[in-house]
Simulated scan of single mutants.
Amino acid sequence: MASGASATTFAPWDDPNEAPLIRIENVTKRFGDFTAVDDISLDIYRREFFALLGPSGCGKTTLMRMLAGFEIPTEGRITIDGQDMAGVPPNKRAVNMMFQSYALFPHLSVWDNIAFGLRRDGLPKDKVEARVEEMLKLVQLQKFSKRKPHQISGGQRQRVALARSLAKAPKLLLLDEPLGALDRKLREETQFELMDIQEKTGTTFVIVTHDQEEAMTVASRVAVMDQGRLIQVATPPVIYESPNSVYVADFLGDASFFDGTVRRSDGCYELTWAEGQPPIRAKSAHGFTDGQTAHYAIRPEKVEIHADKPADDNVMQGRVVDIGYLGNLSTYHVELGNGQIIKAQSFNTERDTRRRFTWDDPVWVNWTDACGVLLEK
């Protein structure tokens, strides 16, 4: 169940009595001297829409291929629904995989593409027909059942591949960059279609993607990976608002960073980060000792920009050195007195082509002590 669904009531990972569908225990995969997956342990639950997120070469696809049975772990164990997958070939697992290329048969109709796996399993003709019609209805392609793949759009081909993958009712569906071939607008539309289909079928989905927005939109939980390791596993709001490291804060979304030392002050921490600059006040549930080195991350949408000095916890003066106009909002790059750049965003709520601020304007930026996050690493 994706984050857009009833995420407040769906949290099996918080229930100690809930058994995971997939259990990955201390799994490592080496190719010669190269370690692609490094000692990963992870539980994924029934009905989850789980995202493996990270840059190219981080190990996410290798991990997915081990779930599918196309790669064998060098060390560790993978169980699916309580069954150890050691020695179980791909065609004997209750798992299906949908590839980025879709891999549809060009000479077969949409109907026959969906029916292919069911027929190969020897299912009776009436059951094949009933299941294919059910899948066509699920992906809303009844009108296109007689067409060949080249006679339908990219988004429709993606739905055919999804219907074919779901036709055999797998316990687990693996999606390898499934929307990568679609243009931006169609990709965004298809994300919501995927969420709706996943919720209707109740199938556990695991998606591999390098697209942060895609992972944040569709997933119930996100696993951020880097260099074969899990860096953080959490729900999209927790990953975004409470990253556990500079790497996660920087990889997921946009942020400005300040490095310095911290000390306790009036129930908050003060980060001393540059000579001649006011300290940054920050609340943190994580404990720091006085004098400890820390990193501070602040998202641009949390930073306000003003012509006059505001009254707030964190107030700094600078000048606008760059502007990014994105239609619905503008991002201002503000250079502070010591040369540090901080980003501030404002929504363009009125239909006016004149910006509030322009290049070289002197401005003030501010935010409250609860807006940013202090990080140890």
Rank of each mutant, 00 (worst) to 15 (best):
G276M: 03
R264S: 12
N244D: 08
E241Q: 15
S256A: 12
D290G: 15
A285C: 03
G260T: 14
V248Q: 04
V238A: 11
L252A: 01
V248T: 11
S265T: 06
D259H: 13
D250P: 14
E275W: 03
R263D: 05
S242L: 14
F258C: 12
V246L: 15
V262G: 13
G291Y: 14
T272G: 07
D259R: 10
F251I: 07
Y269A: 02
D290M: 03
Y247A: 10
A255P: 13
Y269N: 03
V238R: 11
A249P: 02
Q277R: 03
A274P: 04
D266W: 01
V248N: 06
G276E: 04
V248H: 06
Y269I: 02
V248K: 05
D290Y: 07
K283L: 11
V246P: 00
T261V: 15
S265E: 09
G260F: 11
W273C: 01
E275T: 15
V246R: 14
P237S: 08
S245D: 04
P279C: 01
D290T: 03
S256V: 13
Y240R: 05
F258D: 08
V238D: 09
S256C: 09
R264Y: 02
V238N: 10
P279N: 00
H286W: 11
G267I: 05
E275S: 13
P243V: 07
I280S: 06
R281K: 12
R264E: 11
Y247G: 07
F251M: 04
T289I: 03
A282T: 01
T272C: 02
E275R: 05
F288H: 15
G287T: 14
L252P: 00
A255D: 08
R263C: 04
A274G: 07
Y269W: 04
P279Y: 03
F251N: 02
D266L: 08
E270S: 04
A282E: 01
D250F: 14
V262I: 14
V246M: 08
L271S: 05
P278W: 08
